[in-house]
Nucleic acid binder design. Sequence first.
DNA 1: ATCCAGGTTGCCA
DNA 2: TGGCAACATGGA
Length: 328
Amino acid sequence: MTFDIKAPDFDLEKTLNSGQVFHWEKIDNGFVGTIGEVPVFVEQRGGELKVCRGETPRPAGGTPTLPGMVAHYFALDHSLPEIRAALPKDPAMQAALTFCRGLRIIRQPKWECLATFICSSMKQVAHIRQISRALRERFGEECTISGVVRRLDGVSPHRSINYSVFTFPSAERIARSSEAQLRSCALGYRAKNLLATARLVTRGDVDLESMSRLADVDLRAALGELPGVGAKVANCVMLFAYERLRAFPIDVWIERVLREQYFRRKRNVTPQRLSEFTESYFGEHGGYAQQYLFHYARMFGGRRAVGARKQDATARVPPACGLSLRGL
DNA sequence: ATCCAGGTTGCCA
DNA sequence: TGGCAACATGGA
């Protein structure tokens, strides 16, 4: 069964390839992945999404409608015009913002997001994708997606699709595995942390759902208690799974941008000071600012920008703004 | 081959 | 507090 969903001001590819989520696979002009336990094929055509769902591994009760679920996951309710208007007007921000038009901060399942970002430390995005896939194939459940989608050319009425995808393993499933099994998924030293955190979640020592009621500072502290979760990962999980749009994760890419564009290579700028600056300067939607700067820097910035050709061949040239991030 | 990656942690002064 | 090394793995 396929649905059409209105999705104005949305760029599916930029959203899924910007390093906030790691499991979506580009296939046949669309993407195959899961939204929670629901396997989904999504294809964007102009301002519309064509969505086809597969079978969940188990019958799920109280599931919302597919269009509602998709719209919620991709945060189609976020008002991008308002968010864009509220961001700073400096050249670096404007350039990133122009390039990242339609990129949305999505709403990921909490455990899935937490687990993958625990695996993300000192890993390139490509590696994180490999780890995510390995965990799914080893411990997740396989689902199939089959159906019909109308063809782009409109010559034939439709084409049939048939894909396979794995759900992300639950905390319980990870907790039941061994550190050696996790290491076989190329987790390295992160295996110990993922296992320990999975056990805490499984035992009920932490309740990821009820933590959504905490204020930002308390949520950050609670997440920080988990093994393998420091300031950066906590901010990623807050931003990508708890709808805390102020959260501003600072990784090596963002740190380069901040030092080059906002601190003009000044020395003695501690992580603490960087954090204070981003909090006050980018404000309420800092997470969006961060994601736009991150994606832009990764596509065009110095230190051999990653994937500019493969991921976005149509936009190889950065927007003309009289500013370059080269030489960071 | 060498460098580096969406960091965290423990230990040192 | 701030600096620093260890920690695993594989893409560029």
